[in-house]
Amino acid sequence: MTRLLPAQFADLEPYAQTWCRRTEAERWAVRAASSMQELADFYDAAFPRLEAAIEYCDEHPLDALPDDVGRLVELVHSVVMVSMAVEIFGQPKTVDSADAVLHRVREPRP
C-alpha cells in the first residue's frame, strides 16, 4: 500500500484513508456517518499526536506543502472535527441541532 503520511506519522497511517479529506464538507460527512466507537478510536490514536503533527507541518511553508504533509494537515483538521463529537457532545451529531444544516461553501486550502 502506498504511504499517505510522512514516515514519522506511520502510526496514523491506518486512519489516513478515511480521514485525509480536502474539505470540511467531506470531514463533516465522515463524522456524521461514523459510530462513536470509530470516532473514539481515531481520536485516541491521533489526539496525542496532534501537537507533534502541527509542529512537523510547521517546518514547511504553508503555500508549498509536500503532498504527504498536506495530507497530514487534512488529518489534523479531521482531529479538530472529531474532537467536537468526542470531547464536547458525546455523539457524532451536534447535540440539539435538530434538522438544521450549515454548509461551509468557501474555505482556504489546505
Binding site: 451536534t94 440539539d96 441541532s97 438544521a100
Partner: peptide, 11 residues
C-alpha cells in the same frame, strides 16, 4: 457546532 444549535432551536 453552536450555530447549528441556534438554527435547530429556531425551527
Amino acid at each position: 457546532e453552536f450555530a447549528l444549535q441556534d438554527a435547530g432551536m429556531l425551527g
